[in-house]
Structures are given as structure tokens and as C-alpha cells.
Simulated scan of single mutants.
Amino acid sequence: MSKRPPTSATAEASTEKTQCGVIMPIAAIDGCSAAHWADVLAIIQESLEDTVFQAELVSSSNDTAIIHKTIVKNLYSNEIVVCDVSARNPNVMLELGMRLAFNKPVVVIKDDATPYSFDTSPILHLEYPRDLRFPSVKDFKVKLKQKVIATHEAAKAPGYSFFLAEYTIYESASLPKEEVAPYDMVLKELAEVKKLVTSSKAAESSSETASDQSFEGRFYTFSVPDFESLDKVVSFCSGQNVLVLVDRLPSPNGPGEVRVKLTKDVPLVRIYAGVQKILRRKDGKGD
């Protein structure tokens, strides 16, 4: 009877092992003793015995380096990591957060007595019984082995992103800014006023002979800084027998806007001059 050739995973297992980091509680917590967590670590290691992976705590090291340095180094460099979030151990959650920030592949597991955490709940969790019942643990070991192999293979794909790709940061578009000297700005505003006056006079003079050039039915928009100015502008325009529409109320995020519907009987320059007079008084500039 011919011997079945080993799979790629078991073949490599006989030579060089790939480090699989393990993040998990190791001291007593949530009613579970240190011996309990040692049993869980043994189950993880047994799950990967006939694979290319060697499961070791991320705090494990052959040298005498500072333990925190060893943990961070392994969290970054281990090709695959298994994280047990059972009992919501603070150190475990911190190390899991670092692994996710590195955008490295991780398989998350937990016992059936631990509820899901909000921030990590979108990640698939493999579950095992806290009492470590043999039949359930046996099934868990098979699933864990399959998940570790599949996640490790998926991470080899170009552009792979385990966690961060699910979140996009949007930046709002910025408006262009132009810096001008104060006198340049005044001259620019005066030129705009002159243009409006000229346009208004031209529209009035031609309203009877060229209705398509008339301002009748058109809207002109004014910006108002606060509710007091808004009320005065609306009252003034209403007194001129023109339609006023409030498009936006003033707020801490920006000024309000009102639209005035012009007629051939009320020239634009009259409305513009009246509104500007209200706004100048509000700014304390007088007439």
C-alpha cells in the first residue's frame, strides 16, 4: 500500500516552522485560574501541530530583551496571530489593537462566557466552551486550524488589508482663499457696486422695449450675519413691495441668506442700497 504524500502544510512542518503569535490572558481573571489559560494555550498549540505554524505567546523570546519590546516586535513581525479575547483582559485588548493598527492578519477567538466587544465585534470570532469540554474543544481545534491556514493564505494576496480597509476617512473639500490688502478689497467692492448700479439703470431704461433684459422676476441674494439683521432686511424689502425668501437662517456655522425677487417698478439699486445701509449700521459703520 503506497504512502499518501504529505500535504504542503505537513511537508513544511517537518522542516521550518512559521511563527504564529498568541495573544491571550495568562494570569487568573474572571474566575479562571492561570492553569486554565495554560490549558487553552495547549489547545491552540495542539490545533496547529501538523501545520507549518508554531504557536507561541507574543511575549516569548529566546533572548533577554525587555518584554514590552518583544511583544511589540512579535505583534508586528509574526505572519499570523491568534488572539483570545476571553474575559476581556485589558492587556490582550491593547495588543489586539496594535496588531489591527499594523494591519496584520489575526484570528480572534473567545470562550462562550465572554460577550462580544463593540469595537471588535465586526471581526469573526471562533468560540470554544469555557469549561473546555472535550467534544466541543475537538471541533474547535479543527476550525481553528482551518481558519489560521486560510487567513495566512489570504494575507499573501497583493493589496491585502485585514481590518483598516473597511474604514475610509473622508476629508471635506477646502474652498480657495485669496489674500488681498484692505484697500484692494474696498476697491473691489466698489467696482461690484458700480457694476450693479450700471446694470440696474440699464435694465430700467430698457424694461419697456426689451423685456428679456429686465430684472423683473429675477432674484438677488443677500448674506445676513444674524437674526436681528435678517428681521430688518425682511421688513425693509417687504416695505418695498418685493417678495423676500429666507434660504438659510444665520448660525454659528455661517451667515444666513435671503433672496429678493425684483420687479420693474423697484430698481435693484434701491434694494441694494437699503440692505447695505442696514448691514453697515449693524457693523457700527453708520451711513
Rank of each mutant, 00 (worst) to 15 (best):
P135V: 03
A101W: 12
L245T: 11
V72D: 03
N74D: 07
C32W: 02
E208V: 11
R218L: 07
E204P: 04
L249G: 03
D184E: 13
E16S: 11
Q240L: 09
Y170E: 12
L245D: 13
F162V: 13
T168R: 15
S251G: 06
V193K: 13
G159P: 03
V234M: 15
D247N: 03
S172G: 09
E192W: 11
Y116K: 09
S200A: 08
S207C: 11
Y160H: 12
L48P: 00
S172M: 13
S47R: 07
A273L: 11
F222E: 03
A181C: 15
T221N: 08
K17P: 13
A27W: 03
E166C: 11
K73S: 12
H152W: 10
L41F: 02
K143A: 04
V275N: 07
L144P: 00
A181S: 14
C83T: 07
V148E: 01
K104T: 08
E95K: 02
D139I: 06
T70S: 13
L144Q: 02
F219T: 11
D247Y: 02
L262F: 05
Y160S: 08
A101T: 01
V233H: 00
K201P: 02
K285C: 01
G217Q: 00
E204K: 07
N62H: 05
V108S: 09
L126Q: 03
T51L: 00
D231I: 13
S200R: 10
S199M: 12
T209S: 09
T120V: 08
L144M: 06
V142D: 08
E79D: 14
F53L: 00
L175W: 10
A210L: 12
A35N: 04
K282W: 03
I67H: 11
I67V: 15
P225L: 07
M24S: 12
D30Y: 10
S200V: 07
F118S: 15
A13E: 07
R281N: 15
V233Y: 01
T7Q: 05
A11R: 15
D63T: 04
P115V: 09
L190D: 10
A273T: 11
T70R: 05
F215Y: 15
R4G: 14
R270S: 03
I271A: 00
L144D: 08
K201E: 02
C20R: 05
L124N: 06
A202L: 15
A55E: 04
N62W: 02
K3S: 09
V233E: 00
P252Y: 04
Y128I: 01
L41R: 08
F163V: 08
I123M: 02
F140L: 04
K194I: 15
R259P: 07
P5Y: 02
I149W: 01
Y76S: 10
